[in-house]
């Protein structure tokens, strides 16, 4: 579904990603883990067309998209839920969700998606008219994920959905992600929460210094000695 070949990207003259190659199959949940500053967010933004492209290819459902504008990539179904949520702070929950479907001209389809998101996160139905910035961190994260789902993703990119959330809320978030996956969504997720992420991921890539250092099945990586030493603290 999503195929990345030798992708390089960065900010101006500063190159961050070096020949990153990875694939996400249809219906798969693929995790990207790695230390702070490894370039995980830069990778997400390179996929969305939000940082400077420096080479390589990105194919979505077989078609090249690395030359497309950010809007065109959204239109093709590559949707990112960014790190730190980035909601529209002074819009209501319903308005934030509505903005996710900005490119969808079909009112009935927008309502269907809205219904689906409120079914996934019932709290968003109750809080429909609440101003987004007045919600708790966990609720805001639900709005952010809901907003991304409103765009009708073929591939959903989630950048650190559990960042800054209380442990109990983190578990809820992982449950929600599991439900989205069970609906058949193709997901690529970046997480600091390595243990919990590798348990739910089909496959995972370890990104270090802007390059892929390791890849494997989620549960296999949990047993990998390098992973244990560097990320899991279980050695």
């Amino acid at each position: 579904m999503l195929e990345i070949k030798n992708l390089s990207a960065g900010y101006g003259d500063l190159q961050i990603l070096w020949n990153v190659s990875l694939t996400v199959g249809e219906g798969e949940l693929v995790a990207i883990v790695g230390p702070n500053g490894a370039g995980k967010t830069t990778l997400m933004n390179a996929l969305s067309g939000m940082v400077d492209y420096k080479g390589g290819e990105i194919h979505l459902a077989g078609a090249p998209i690395h030359k497309l504008s950010p809007q065109a990539r959204v239109a093709r179904g590559l949707i990112q839920c960014p790190e730190g949520r980035r909601l529209f702070p002074e819009m209501t929950v319903a308005e934030n969700l509505r903005m996710g479907a900005y490119l969808c001209g079909d009112g009935a389809e927008v309502r269907r998606r809205h219904e689906m998101v409120e079914h996934l996160f019932p709290i968003l139905r109750e809080r429909r008219d609440q101003i987004a910035s007045s919600m708790s961190g966990g609720q805001q994260q639900m709005v952010a994920i809901g907003r991304a789902l409103m765009a009708g993703p073929k591939v959903l990119l989630l950048d650190e959905p559990s960042l800054g959330l209380a442990p109990i809320v983190v578990s809820e978030m992982f449950e929600a992600i599991d439900r989205i996956r069970n609906e058949g969504m193709t997901l690529m997720i970046v997480e600091q929460n390595v243990q919990q992420t590798l348990q739910v991921a089909d496959r995972a890539y370890v990104l270090e210094n802007g390059a892929i250092a390791l890849e494997g099945k989620g549960i296999e990586l949990l047993d990998n000695p390098h992973m244990k030493a560097a990320y899991l603290g279980t050695e």
Partner: peptide
């Protein structure tokens, strides 16, 4: 109008939603 408000409140997120 909604696009303007979105761009005003968070231009980065607005672009991620497909707003030009």
């Amino acid at each position: 109008g909604m696009g303007m408000r979105a761009a005003s409140q968070n231009p980065f997120a607005a672009q991620l939603m497909g707003i030009d």
